[in-house]
Structures are given as structure tokens and as C-alpha cells.
Lab assay of single mutants.
Amino acid sequence: NLYFQGLKYMVPGARVTRGLDWKWRDQDGSPQGEGTVTGELHNGWIDVTWDAGGSNSYRMGAEGKFDLKLAP
């Protein structure tokens, strides 16, 4: 699974964008943008601060869902 392989790169400072299971509307800005991981992966959740200004926790394994992917 590509998403599980990418988890080791989901570290503080990593750049991310919305992924396969995104369901959080425009939390990442409008139009959709990139963000920066600000915390360690914990119980399948990870913290992100978006360039647009907001921050929140997103699923990276929790509930079998992956809200994020590494930015290109």
C-alpha cells in the first residue's frame, strides 16, 4: 500500500496536500493548498498547519483512512 509506505516520511516539516480520503472541505484553503506537518504521527492521526492559515489533525491510518499525501 503506497500510503503505508509513505508514512515514514510523514514527519514534522514534511509538506502535504489532501489525499485519497479527504473529507474536510476547504480546511486546506480555497483553492486547495499545501501544508506542513507539525507533529508526530499518533494513533493514526497527524497534525498539519496549512499555508492558508488553519491547522488541524488528520487521519493517516486512523479508521483505515488517509486524508493526506506528500506534496509533489
Rank of each mutant, 00 (worst) to 15 (best):
G54P: 06
R15E: 00
A52P: 02
A62T: 04
L70V: 09
A52Y: 12
T36Q: 07
T36H: 04
R59C: 02
I46G: 00
H42K: 13
T36D: 02
G61V: 02
G53Q: 02
V16G: 01
E63N: 11
L7R: 09
G33C: 12
Y9H: 11
K65R: 09
G64Q: 07
M60K: 00
R59A: 00
N56A: 11
T49Q: 12
T49Y: 08
T38L: 09
A71I: 13
V11I: 13
K65C: 15
L41I: 12
S55G: 08
Y3S: 14
R59D: 01
T38D: 07
T49P: 00
Y9V: 08
D26A: 08
G39H: 08
G64R: 07
L7Y: 09
M10F: 15
W22K: 03
R25I: 10
L41R: 08
V16S: 00
G29K: 04
G54R: 07
E40K: 13
K65V: 04
T38F: 07
K69I: 11
L41M: 10
M10K: 04
S55H: 11
Q27V: 06
D47Y: 13
G44V: 04
E40G: 11
R25M: 15
P31L: 08
V16I: 05
Y58E: 01
V11Q: 09
G29M: 05
N43S: 09
R15Y: 02
Y9T: 08
D67V: 03
P72V: 13
S30V: 14
Q27K: 05
Y9P: 06
K23W: 06
G13T: 03
T49K: 12
S57F: 09
L70E: 04
Q27E: 13
T36S: 08
R59I: 02
G19A: 07
K69P: 00
W45Y: 07
N43V: 07
M10T: 03
G33Q: 08
E40L: 13
L68K: 00
D51V: 04
M60P: 00
R18S: 03
R59M: 02
M10Q: 03
G61P: 02
N56P: 02
K23R: 09
R59K: 01
Y9A: 09
D47T: 14
M10S: 03
L7T: 08
R25Y: 12
G61Q: 02
Q5P: 15
Q27A: 08
Q32S: 14
W45M: 06
K23F: 06
E40F: 14
G35C: 02
M10P: 03
L41P: 08
L41D: 03
R15K: 08
Y3V: 14
F4D: 15
L2E: 15
G64D: 09
P31A: 08
R15M: 03
A14R: 08
G39A: 09
G6W: 15
F4P: 15
R15Q: 01
Q27W: 06
L41T: 06
E63A: 09
G35H: 00
S57T: 12
P31S: 08
K69E: 12
V37P: 00
S57D: 03
G13H: 04
W24C: 07
S30E: 11
D47R: 15
V16F: 03
T49C: 15
T17M: 14
W22M: 05
H42D: 10
D28M: 04
Y3F: 14
N56S: 10
V37F: 02
V48H: 00
L68Y: 00
D67S: 02
W45P: 00
Y58G: 01
L70G: 04
W45I: 03
Y3I: 14
R59Q: 02
W50R: 00
V11D: 03
V37R: 01
A14M: 09
L7D: 07
P31Q: 08
Y58R: 00
I46K: 01
I46H: 02
L70H: 07
V37D: 01
K65W: 04
E40R: 12
R18L: 09
G39L: 04
W22Q: 03
Y3E: 15
Q5M: 10
N1F: 10
G53Y: 04
W45H: 02
W45N: 00
G6T: 15
I46R: 00
D28P: 06
G19E: 03
K8R: 10
D67I: 02
L41Y: 10
D21F: 05
D21I: 04
L41N: 06
Q5L: 11
T49I: 12
T17A: 11
G33L: 07
L20M: 13
K23H: 07
Y58N: 01
R25C: 15
M10V: 09
K8S: 11
G64S: 08
R15G: 01
K8Y: 09
W24A: 06
A62H: 11
G33K: 07
V37N: 01
L2Q: 15
E34G: 10
L7A: 09
R18C: 06
V37M: 03
T36N: 04
Y3M: 14
T49F: 08
G39P: 00
A52D: 08
T17Y: 06
A52C: 14
G19D: 04
A52M: 11
G44K: 01
Y58T: 01
D26C: 13
F66P: 01
G19N: 08
V48G: 00
M10Y: 13
F4H: 13
